[in-house]
């Protein structure tokens, strides 16, 4: 014979929820405690706590700074440089890079050879260099770069 009786279910208390979670995650907790110990011993934990406390101020002011005139310009220039870098053909860059490094080596050798003599390059030597096949190729490449840049500048000016 069952008369009606009332009951109000208690939602699990915070402590009960915590105990249940701890029970589920025992291994993960043990490992994370190890990590925390290390961070604490090296003083990193305290720095992190203070950083997080400074959090909103940090991010708000950081963003504010970043959004300022000079920072925006800086970021935009970085982005533009990045776009240039992504537009250049890596193969061509490699060729030019190798050429430049070979050239630097050659130039350093020349300096080493001629600095002891305490004179610069003389006119006859200059003319004989101009006849040199390698120098002609490099000069051609340099003028090619100038020509390409000049064309782009001219076209930009015309728009």
């Amino acid at each position: 014979m069952a008369k009606a009786i009332e009951f109000t279910p208690q939602p699990p208390s915070l402590q009960q929820k915590l105990d249940a979670s701890v029970g589920d995650s025992a291994e993960a907790l043990a490992e994370s405690l190890r990590l925390l110990r290390e961070l604490h011993e090296h003083g990193v934990l305290e720095v992190l706590v203070r950083l997080v406390r400074g959090g909103e101020g940090l991010s708000a002011s950081a963003l504010h700074l970043l959004a300022g005139e000079s920072s925006t310009t800086l970021i935009k220039n970085v982005v533009e440089l990045g776009k240039t870098a992504s537009a250049l053909n890596p193969d061509e860059v490699r060729v030019l890079g190798q050429a430049v490094s070979a050239g630097v080596t050659e130039g350093a050798k020349y300096v080493a050879e001629f600095s002891s003599r305490n004179r610069g390059i003389g006119l006859p030597e200059l003319l004989s260099m101009l006849r040199d096949r390698d120098v002609q190729l490099a000069l051609g490449a340099v003028f090619g770069v100038l020509k390409g840049a000049g064309r782009a500048l001219r076209e930009a000016g015309e728009d």
Binding site: I75, K76, V79
Partner: peptide, 24 residues
């Protein structure tokens, strides 16, 4: 994000968008 941070983030991105373009 809290509103002021949210607004700053959007302003930053808008500022950069001129260079980077929307696709990035």
């Amino acid at each position: 994000l809290p509103k002021p941070v949210f607004e700053s983030a959007i302003d930053l991105v808008k500022g950069v968008e001129h260079s980077s373009g929307l696709q990035l």
